[in-house]
Nucleic acid binder design. Structure first.
Length: 683
DNA sequence: ATGCCGACTTAGTATTCTTTAG
DNA sequence: CTAAAGAATACTAAGTCGGCAT
């Protein structure tokens, strides 16, 4: 069960995370006050926001009374708990003034698929296979991990540049060749002949009919331009408006239906076959240790699905061939055989300063690369993940100083210094991303250093309203009260500028990060996100980082259903109440006009029933509120990328919650490195 | 300094698997 | 059992940031 966000007002203080609050209060008291300013402000904010505190709650299913379950983790726990005094992390937790964001998804910037049909069938028989796999994997993992922790200590820090000594793998897997279906589309009402290559691209477009892309001009234009290159100048097809892809779309629907109709055996056979084909690509051997490979499948051809208003959406992403691919492998280890007869790799390298196993150039953005890496569960990834969190923890020791430092510079005469101070403040306070420059041919999004004057509105006396599209064209809309010097500075930065001009004209991410590095070795803008997220470690995190998801298609109906059910229960309850009244007045239930009634309910029974129903209603209201309030919050991203897993592990150990109630299998593997932390661990 | 290349992390969405409701 | 809901995983786009050449 994932921790659930609960933002309802007035629900506060007594949650499972109350220990965290306590800690933070304490630290504030203990702090000496030289940096009173930012802190005081923070405190204020925190307090004022406290009413909307969110908290984690571990939801249990009725079925899982897992407190008593024995998990290895839990056992390991006990002794440790007693040992660890839990004390002491003296100062910590300056709560990152997470102002509640009003993050809105502008429908226009999202071309979400509204892919209507969704049906799944699950075969019980597949259970066998899966569970076997699970067991097998667990076994492997145990072996690997025990070896790993040693290997990890021995391994040179990532600083040295050498990432591995030996590396073996089997290369990459290519998607199957295109199988023509022969269904003719119509042009100007007439069926047209297409070569398989032409048909392939037409089909890519046809099957996207019920996504929002299909009606976007940019998408259509890009698609049509690329398709016409394949059709050739002399082809009868000249105008998009005369194209009718319906026949192909319908073929596609039939295919889907057929697939759905397959028997479980057929499906299983298909899966087994797939598993067999993929088997050899699943693993690499790094320094003698078997490690899972991440994305060994080469991306299949398709129409580019850029996010937001991406100028290249709809462009044909051409098929990648062996000749596009560079392989990286240990010297002296056998080069993976090229799986496509008659073709060969572009290049084979032996570079042990990098971790990729293969790469190719992105056909959409020729200057970009697509890499094949090891899976997140690998030692290599785990190690750097751990380093990331260690760096964020180190920031704890510098954060006070850093805040004092930038507060001082809010009024600097040096314009560069001043801008850096304000930018750092925003990165710290609002978890803004650094904001690198972007090319013309990308979606127009911004981060801190690339904020435009139109993205910030100064609201007297001292509020700033932010409204911009950030990463993935997710809208960031937030109004924050800032310290007066910050407000004045921003106003000044914007003064006399035109739309499209940078607020921070004097700086960029390089200067910003260079400055941060002077304050703490290795410090960059993104560390603040990790730091603040891990320090906060509760549901607020998903909000401060603006991780979003589309409101699910079923959200509205879900809410309606809940309301319906609640109403229904209320009616039931009222009915029972009325009956109770009668019963109390001494009427036998049987005396009712409704003589057919068989059940004789005593007042006690009725009361029990009523309170049972009321509990149900209450539960549903809570569910309803949670559903509504978390509909755009994507907690998963925080969980995977920002929250130091050791915090969670330690918490689980302290509270004897099996870790697998919090982390899924994959994520558990990814965080293997964090599992043996003691319950006393503090970020 | 700046620009570009390169490698790696972070991110939302699509797809698949699992669980639950009916 | 089936279908729908929900969780997990797969996929790949979109960021960050370091380093080297200019």
């Amino acid at each position: 069960m994932a921790p659930t966000v609960c933002l309802s007002d007035g629900d506060d203080e007594d949650g499972p995370i109350s220990f965290k609050r306590t800690a933070s209060v304490k630290s504030e008291q203990e702090d000496d006050s030289e940096d009173e300013k930012p802190l005081a402000m923070r405190t204020t904010r925190l307090t004022s926001n406290a009413s909307s505190t969110s908290r984690n709650s571990i939801k249990r299913r009725p079925g899982d009374s897992n407190t008593g379950t024995s998990s290895p983790l839990k056992k390991a726990k006990h002794s440790a708990i007693e040992r660890e005094p839990k004390a002491a992390d003296a100062h910590d937790n300056k709560i990152p003034l997470a102002p509640r964001l009003t993050s809105v998804k502008p429908s226009k910037t999202k071309p979400p698929a509204k892919n209507a049909t969704k049906n799944k069938k699950k075969s019980p028989s597949s259970f066998t296979k899966d569970s076997q796999k699970g067991v097998e994997m667990k076994a492997k993992k145990t072996v690997r991990n025990s070896r790993l922790s040693k290997a990890m200590k021995v391994r040179q820090g990532s600083g040295s540049g050498k990432k591995w000594s030996t590396l073996e793998h089997n290369g990459v897997m290519f998607p199957p060749p295109y199988m023509p279906h022969g269904v003719k589309m119509l042009y100007n009402g007439q069926p047209v002949d297409l070569t398989p290559e032409q048909e392939e691209v037409a089909t890519m477009f046809a099957v996207m009919r019920d996504t929002e892309y299909a009606s976007k001009e940019t998408f259509i234009n890009n698609f049509f331009t690329d398709w016409r290159k394949i059709l050739g100048k002399t082809h009868i097809i000249k105008k998009f408006e005369l194209c009718d892809f319906t026949t192909i779309y319908e073929w596609h629907l039939r295919e889907k239906e057929n697939k759905k109709q397959m028997t479980t055996e057929e499906k299983k056979a298909l899966r087994d076959e797939k598993g067999k084909r993929e088997e050899k690509y699943l693993w690499a051997i790094v320094d003698g240790v078997k490690e899972k490979v991440g994305n060994f499948r080469v991306e299949p051809p398709g129409l580019f699905r850029g996010r937001g208003e991406h100028p290249k959406m709809g462009r044909l992403k051409r098929r990648i061939r062996p000749n596009d691919i560079t392989i990286n492998i240990g010297k002296g280890t056998p080069v993976p055989v090229c799986p496509i007869p008659g073709e060969s790799w572009k290049e084979v390298k032996h570079d042990n300063t990098v971790t990729w196993l293969a790469f190719w150039n992105d056909p959409i953005n020729q200057k970009d690369f697509k890499y094949v890496f090891l899976a997140a569960s690998s030692s290599l990834k785990g190690q750097s993940d751990k380093e990331k969190y260690e760096k964020a923890r180190k920031l704890k020791d510098h954060i006070d100083n850093i805040r004092v430092n930038y507060t001082k510079d809010f009024r600097s005469k040096d314009q560069v210094k001043k801008q850096i101070a304000v930018a750092t403040y925003l990165v710290d306070k609002l978890a803004l991303r650094a904001g690198n420059e972007k090319d013309e041919d990308e979606a127009d999004t911004v981060g801190c250093c690339t904020l435009k004057v139109e993205n910030v509105t100064c609201l007297p006396p001292n509020k700033l309203q932010f409204d911009f599209l950030g990463k993935d064209s997710i809208r960031y809309l937030n109004t924050v009260e800032v310290e007066l010097p910050v407000y004045e500075a921003v106003k000044e930065f914007c003064a006399g500028k035109n739309k499209g001009d940078n607020v921070f004209a004097e700086i960029d991410t390089i200067k910003l990060n260079a400055h941060l590095k002077e304050l703490m070795p290795g410090l960059t803008a993104k560390v603040f996100r990790t730091y603040n997220a891990s320090v906060t470690l509760d549901a607020m995190v998903a909000i401060i980082c603006n991780h979003q998801r589309a409101v699910s298609k079923s959200h509205d109906s879900q809410m309606a259903k809940l309301n319906e059910k609640i109403d229904e229960l209320k009616v039931q309850r009222d009915g029972l109440k009325a009956e109770l009244e009668k019963a109390k007045k001494g009427k036998r239930p049987g005396d009712d006009k409704d003589g057919s009634r068989k059940k004789k309910l005593t007042p006690e029974m009725l009361e029990n029933k009523i309170s049972g129903i009321e509990a149900k209603i209450e539960g549903m209201v809570i569910t309803k509120n949670n559903t509504e309030e978390s509909k755009t919050v994507a907690l998963g991203t925080s969980k995977i990328n920002y929250l130091d897993p050791r915090i969670t592990v330690a918490w689980c150990k302290t509270h004897e919650i099996p870790i697998n109630k919090i982390f899924s299998k994959t994520i558990l593997e990814k965080f293997g490195w964090a599992m043996d932390v003691g319950p006393g661990f503090r970020f």
